[in-house]
Lab assay of single mutants.
Amino acid sequence: PVYLSVKADNSMFIGNDPVTDETMITALNALTEGKKDTTIFFRADKTVDYETLMKVMDTLHQAGYLKIGLVG
């Protein structure tokens, strides 16, 4: 499974590897070998604001990742 996490300080990680807004999709493409039907499990600290969550989800959708599971 692929886990994308947003921490309380808005830092992002794919698994244990830090990513930025600019590198997130490139890292996901490498990890999933470009398979856009891969489910991305998205988790965020409860203090992360809604705007940040939606920005990340919008970026995922624009890149073609449509299977996003929200996890606690």
Rank of each mutant, 00 (worst) to 15 (best):
P1I: 09
P1K: 10
P1Q: 09
P1R: 07
P1T: 10
P1D: 06
P1L: 08
V2Q: 03
V2K: 02
V2A: 03
V2H: 02
V2C: 04
V2L: 09
V2W: 02
V2F: 04
Y3Q: 05
Y3C: 13
Y3W: 13
Y3A: 03
Y3S: 04
Y3D: 03
L4M: 07
L4K: 00
L4H: 01
S5Q: 11
S5L: 13
S5E: 12
S5D: 12
V6D: 00
V6E: 00
K7N: 13
K7R: 11
K7F: 14
A8G: 11
A8P: 05
A8Q: 08
A8S: 12
D9E: 05
D9L: 04
D9G: 09
D9H: 08
D9C: 06
D9S: 07
D9Y: 06
D9M: 05
D9I: 04
D9R: 06
N10F: 10
N10C: 09
N10I: 04
N10D: 06
S11Q: 12
S11M: 11
S11N: 08
S11I: 10
M12H: 02
M12E: 01
F13S: 05
F13M: 09
F13R: 05
F13Y: 13
F13A: 05
F13V: 05
F13K: 05
F13Q: 05
I14M: 05
I14G: 01
I14Y: 02
I14F: 07
I14K: 01
I14A: 03
G15T: 02
G15N: 15
G15W: 03
G15K: 03
N16A: 11
N16T: 10
N16D: 12
N16G: 09
N16K: 09
D17C: 13
D17Q: 14
D17A: 11
D17N: 15
D17F: 13
P18H: 08
P18E: 12
P18C: 07
P18G: 05
V19M: 03
V19I: 09
V19S: 02
V19N: 01
V19C: 06
T20A: 03
D21C: 14
D21G: 12
D21V: 15
D21R: 14
D21L: 15
D21N: 14
D21Y: 15
E22K: 11
E22C: 06
E22W: 05
E22F: 07
E22A: 11
T23D: 10
T23G: 07
M24H: 00
M24I: 13
M24P: 01
M24D: 00
M24F: 12
I25Q: 02
I25C: 03
I25S: 02
I25D: 01
I25M: 07
I25N: 02
T26N: 11
T26Y: 09
T26H: 13
T26S: 13
A27M: 15
A27S: 09
A27L: 13
L28I: 11
L28M: 06
L28S: 00
L28Q: 00
L28N: 00
L28T: 01
L28Y: 00
N29H: 09
N29K: 06
N29S: 06
A30Q: 12
A30D: 08
A30S: 09
L31T: 05
L31P: 00
L31S: 05
L31Q: 06
L31Y: 09
L31H: 08
L31F: 07
T32Y: 04
T32D: 02
E33R: 14
E33L: 11
E33M: 13
E33P: 02
E33S: 11
G34L: 05
G34Y: 05
G34D: 06
K35D: 13
K35A: 08
K35H: 10
K36H: 07
K36I: 06
K36N: 05
K36E: 04
K36F: 07
K36C: 04
K36M: 08
K36R: 11
K36W: 05
D37G: 10
D37Y: 06
D37F: 05
D37N: 11
T38H: 06
T38M: 09
T38L: 08
T39I: 15
T39K: 12
T39D: 07
T39Q: 15
T39P: 14
T39G: 04
T39M: 15
T39E: 13
T39A: 09
T39W: 14
I40V: 06
I40F: 01
I40P: 00
I40G: 01
F41R: 05
F41N: 05
F41K: 04
F41D: 04
F41G: 02
F42N: 01
F42I: 15
R43L: 14
R43P: 01
R43D: 12
R43E: 13
A44Y: 15
A44V: 14
A44S: 08
A44T: 09
A44L: 10
A44W: 15
A44C: 12
D45W: 07
D45G: 05
D45S: 06
D45H: 07
D45L: 03
D45M: 03
D45A: 09
K46R: 09
K46E: 14
K46I: 11
K46G: 09
K46N: 11
K46S: 13
T47R: 11
T47A: 13
T47Q: 12
T47F: 12
T47S: 14
T47E: 14
T47K: 10
V48F: 04
V48E: 02
V48N: 03
D49W: 05
D49I: 08
D49E: 12
D49R: 13
Y50S: 09
Y50C: 15
Y50T: 10
Y50D: 08
Y50M: 13
Y50N: 10
Y50F: 12
E51R: 12
E51M: 12
E51L: 12
E51F: 10
E51K: 12
E51T: 10
T52V: 14
T52K: 10
T52E: 04
L53V: 14
L53E: 02
M54E: 07
M54W: 10
M54K: 15
M54A: 10
M54N: 07
K55T: 06
K55R: 13
K55P: 02
V56L: 13
V56I: 14
V56M: 08
M57Y: 07
M57K: 05
M57P: 00
D58S: 12
D58C: 11
D58T: 12
D58H: 14
D58G: 10
T59R: 14
T59Y: 09
T59I: 15
T59D: 06
L60E: 00
L60A: 02
L60C: 01
L60F: 03
L60G: 00
L60Q: 00
L60Y: 00
H61Q: 10
H61Y: 13
H61E: 08
H61V: 11
H61P: 00
H61R: 15
H61K: 14
Q62C: 07
Q62G: 10
Q62E: 12
Q62A: 14
Q62K: 14
A63S: 06
A63F: 06
A63M: 03
A63Y: 07
A63G: 08
G64E: 02
Y65I: 02
Y65A: 01
Y65L: 01
Y65E: 00
Y65N: 00
Y65M: 01
Y65K: 00
Y65V: 01
Y65P: 00
L66W: 15
L66D: 10
K67V: 13
K67T: 12
K67E: 07
K67M: 10
K67P: 05
I68A: 04
I68Q: 03
I68S: 03
G69F: 15
G69C: 15
G69M: 15
G69V: 15
G69R: 15
L70C: 13
L70A: 05
L70T: 10
L70K: 04
L70S: 05
L70D: 05
V71H: 08
V71L: 13
V71T: 08
V71Q: 09
G72W: 06
G72K: 11
G72P: 13
G72C: 13
G72L: 13
G72H: 11
